[in-house]
Design a binder for these strands. Structure first.
Length: 914
DNA sequence: GCAAGGTC
């Protein structure tokens, strides 16, 4: 091993103590290795003799603990009031070793003085390269004659480590530069915005967080803020959700073999008339014909090897552990040698990993040991080489067990759980997928398609050990093509669309991962920061809601038109960092352009600080000395909340100046009545509404902006929000509301919310002079001229069809079979999820669509924001109560949806389509 | 008192 000539001293530095120990052990093969203390008690020094390409070496292997240095502003810029925060974009910064790392620095200096070579064993990623240069700077300051080399390795495996030390390379300056740029940008942006918004808002409002207001820091960071943005965005999405009623036909069939539930191929329809017509056709011609039976073998694959994010997501999902706690427990298991390094992006095992050896270790476990034995038995056929998740950080393998344990005495329940997850996940990864046999039966009732499916699990395979996942199986009776049967139940049911749930921790990690916010080692920190800063809370179900403070800050920047709370900024920076690390751009170039842009953004944000103040004023009271000129903060009493029955509903303005009546129980109670966007003034009067209950409900004197309401309405109106007031309802429909959600939606952020508001107000259609639509989507234009001509051109041989207004598919002509419309022809779209429907005679007449609602297939009438009346435009027809049950042969219940009479169905109603 | 990134 050791060659001739005089031995040189080689200082080897790893990123962390564990790597130093591994490298030393592997290189020395455990022979003749000495350990001695350095100045830092964590960072030992290992010594042994070794030969590098014929050169005899005395190897000294030690470590740092991550970054050795920190970037800071020079002293005179460190105090918050020492300078204008805008100056922080140019204030001099310097890198230095912080107090708690000085002992490591001294060790490096002392050892470097007696060495000739320095070999860097830092992790092989950009941060690792940057740390390498911190070590180089420290060591060369003590000994300028050092020869500097970099060891490149991707796993702590004997052959790999020997190879890398025999093939030393140069450190990569570009990689380190990319990190330098990132650090400087993060520091300047973070410090300037944090100081600015903290000093602006903390003393101006009474922020009732758990922290003392004086110590509250309203931080801004390029990772924490987009993380908050995800939470707020979902919250807004939920708030803006307007439940929409839909209709669905359900069919089931019971036979001796069991029951099959058939789902309507159309999914659901939002148009009630359309759904009822189809439903009634099915009811009147109920025999079902089996159109097809499909049998397929399906596989459920085991997960990819375990990365940090996956570990965090799964621990959150399976055990409700926070990502921060998961990482703490994982770190302890790692320190004790039970699992591999827990901070890894890699989800692919290197071909050199001895997977069988890892399984072998687990054979003795009382619970999963027998599964491990089966895996190793070639005759079981259970083994499968793990899939490749496609990520490799080139530094660490996927998380896997490194030492057998049947459970240690000092382990908490969470240590047990996490170790079990890591082991079971690993065993699952090297197992065959679960196999199932799926049967799909398609049936046809009066031209409508339904389908049912069942699954039988043939082989559980990995699911036997991965108890966290399941694969539902259900058996359905046997059907043969052409078979006919009478459905046991055939019902028309209603449902309402639901908003998405609040973000779970796993969802949030997913969002961050996709947008490139944070790293595997820091993502949980950013989430925790939201909680620590009182920007968000986590409920019992581990789901995140923004606090008033978090929402106000995001709202403030959103109102300025900035995407500072979106992940774009970080993505842009990440793109630039990559360019630097590839040598396409220089560090100086990126710093200059990025900081110039950010400074301009900062100055602009500061000149628009009023937006931030206004957003805060929506949620918080002004501090005493500034509250004098504020009004509408608390609001005037209108009624007791009919939802929570605990708090008062008060008249308020939102930050755009739009009026609303909201429950003071917010955020626990979210009851709110949004008022028409055309209201210019609103004052609660002493008049009490005598038709709405429970009372008292105080009436509000409104003034509307003349140009924003149709001429038939008066600008002055004494109104009630209890549901009795038709004028308010109509104006709300016509003008829209000032609801933040209707303004924000999912589209691009408006630069000015007032511009958005005026766009949402509707003008009269220039074609038919009606309100509620524009000439481009006027029903008379669509069905009367342009589209009916194009439809005529679409006739097909062997049967008439028209092209669908909505999806463009061909819609065949069909004949209605209902009592009132027997023999009448219509076209309805066959595409899944499409509910286009039109009567043939309405096309021939060239006129508009049917009746008030009939035929206008896609009109998804929005529910009125003035509560309590069901769907707009169909007063008196409360369809949600009417589940029409028409079990063939069984009694039929329900009532007519047109007039509400229980003695007949709509198909026999004399008032239908009149 | 501020960021995000390493790590103990």
């Amino acid at each position: 091993m050791s060659g001739g000539g005089r031995a040189i001293n080689v200082l080897n530095v790893a990123e962390k103590p564990s790597v130093a120990k591994s490298v030393a052990t592997l290189l020395s093969r455990g022979q003749g290795m000495r350990v001695r203390e350095g100045r830092s008690r964590y960072n030992k020094i290992f010594e042994f003799d070794y030969g590098i390409r014929g050169q005899r070496c005395r190897m000294l292997v030690t470590s740092v603990t991550g970054h050795l240095m920190e970037l800071e502003f020079e002293d005179r810029f460190r105090k918050w009031h020492s300078c204008d925060p805008a100056d922080l974009y140019a204030a001099p910064v310097r890198k230095s070793v912080p107090q708690d790392k000085l002992d490591i620095k001294r060790t490096l200096e002392e050892e470097a003085r007696r060495c000739q070579w320095l070999v860097l064993w830092l992790d092989c990623d950009r941060e690792g390269e940057n740390i390498a240069f911190e070590v180089i700077d420290t060591c060369t300051a003590a000994n300028c004659n050092l020869t500097i080399k970099r060891a490149r390795f991707s796993a702590l495996i004997e052959r790999e480590i020997h190879d890398s030390v025999q093939n030393l390379v140069e450190p990569n300056r570009w990689f380190a530069d990319a990190v330098d740029a990132r650090q400087e940008i993060d520091l300047r942006i973070g410090a300037s915005f944090t100081r600015f918004q903290t000093m602006l808002l903390r003393d101006a409002f009474v922020i009732d967080s758990a922290a003392d207001d004086r110590n509250l820091v309203l931080s801004y960071g390029p990772c924490q803020f987009p993380t908050l943005g995800f939470v707020v965005e979902r919250f807004w999405e939920i708030q803006s959700h307007e439940p929409e009623e839909f209709w669905i036909i359900n069919c089931s069939h019971k036979s001796e073999e069991g029951i099959a539930t058939f789902n309507w191929t159309r999914g659901h329809l939002f148009d009630y008339t359309c759904a009822v017509i189809i439903y009634e056709m099915c009811v009147e011609e109920p025999p079902a014909t089996v159109a097809g039976v499909r049998q397929q073998e399906k596989y459920k694959y085991p997960p990819h090897p375990l990365s940090t994010i996956e570990l965090e997501k799964r621990a959150s999902r399976y055990f409700r552990m926070s990502s921060e706690h998961t990482m703490k427990v994982a770190e302890e298991l790692y320190q004790a040698g039970f699992i591999s390094y827990p901070r890894t992006e890699t989800d692919n095992f290197s071909a050199r990993t001895d997977l069988h050896a890892i399984v072998q270790e687990q054979r003795g476990h009382p619970v999963w040991g027998s599964y491990a034995q089966r895996l190793l038995d070639p005759s079981s056929g259970l083994w499968r080489n793990p899939s490749n998740g496609g990520h490799d950080d080139k530094a660490h393998p996927p998380i896997h067990p490194t030492k057998f344990s049947g459970g240690e005495r000092n382990w908490s329940q969470d240590h047990h759980r996490l170790y079990e997850l890591v082991v079971r996940h690993f065993l699952a990864c090297v197992s065959q997928p679960a196999v199932g046999a799926e049967t799909t039966v398609e049936i046809d009732i009066a031209g409508e398609q339904f389908a049912a499916s069942g699954r039988v699990i043939i082989a559980k395979n990995y699911l036997d050990v991965y108890r966290f996942e399941s694969w539902g199986g259900s058996v359905i009776p046997t059907y043969v093509p052409g078979q006919q049967f009478i459905p046991t139940t055939l019902t028309l049911d209603s449902g309402v669309t639901r908003p998405p749930p609040l973000l779970s921790e796993a969802d949030l990690l997913n969002c961050m991962d996709k947008a490139g916010i944070g790293t595997d080692a820091t993502m949980h920190d950013h989430i925790k920061k939201l909680l620590d800063r009182f920007y968000a809370t986590k409920d019992q179900n581990m789901r995140f809601s923004p606090t008033n403070l978090g929402e106000a800050l995001v709202m403030g920047y959103d109102d300025m038109g900035y995407k500072l709370w979106k992940p774009n900024l970080r993505s842009m920076m990440e793109f630039d960092m990559r360019a630097v690390s590839e040598g396409a751009k220089t560090k100086a170039e990126v710093l200059e352009t990025c900081l110039q842009q950010m400074k301009a953004c900062f100055l602009d944000a500061r000149s628009n600080k009023q937006k931030l103040m206004e957003a805060m004023a929506v949620f918080f009271e002004r501090a005493a000395r500034t509250a004098r000129d504020e009004q509408h903060v608390v609001g005037e009493f209108v009624r007791l909340c009919g939802l929570c029955h605990q708090s008062n509903m008060v008249l308020k303005r939102n930050r755009d100046g739009n009026f609303m009546v909201g429950c003071l129980g917010f955020p626990q109670c979210r009851n709110v009545v949004w008022l028409p966007g055309s209201v210019s003034e609103a004052v609660v009067t002493a008049n009490i509404c005598n038709s709405c209950s429970p009372g008292p409900i105080y009436m509000i004197q409104f003034k509307f902006r003349r140009l924003e309401i149709p001429p038939i309405f008066s600008v002055d109106h004494l109104g009630c929000i209890g549901g009795c007031d038709d004028t308010l309802q109509q104006l709300t429909e016509i003008c829209g509301t000032g609801s933040r959600m209707s303004a924000r939606g999912g589209g691009p952020t408006p630069l000015s919310s007032s511009a958005q508001r005026s766009n949402s107000r509707q003008q009269a259609c220039s074609s038919c002079r009606q309100l509620g639509h524009s000439s481009t989507d006027c029903p008379s234009v669509i069905s009367g001229t342009r589209n009916s001509r194009s439809r005529r051109a679409d006739q097909q041989d062997g049967g008439l069809s028209v092209s669908c207004d909505t999806c463009g598919a061909s819609c065949p002509m069909r004949t209605a079979n209902t009592a009132n419309n027997k023999g009448r022809k219509f076209y309805s779209c066959q595409s899944e999820g499409c509910n286009f429907f039109v009567w043939e005679d309405s096309l021939q007449n060239g006129g508009g669509r049917h009746g008030a609602n009939g035929g206008a297939s896609n009109s998804r009438a929005r529910s009125n924001s003035l509560g309590g009346r069901g769907r707009g435009g169909r007063g008196g027809n409360n369809a949600t109560n009417g589940t029409f049950v028409s079990a063939t042969g069984d009694p039929v219940t329900g009532r007519c949806y047109v007039c509400g009479d229980p003695s007949h169905f709509a198909n026999a109603c004399p008032n239908r389509f009149t």
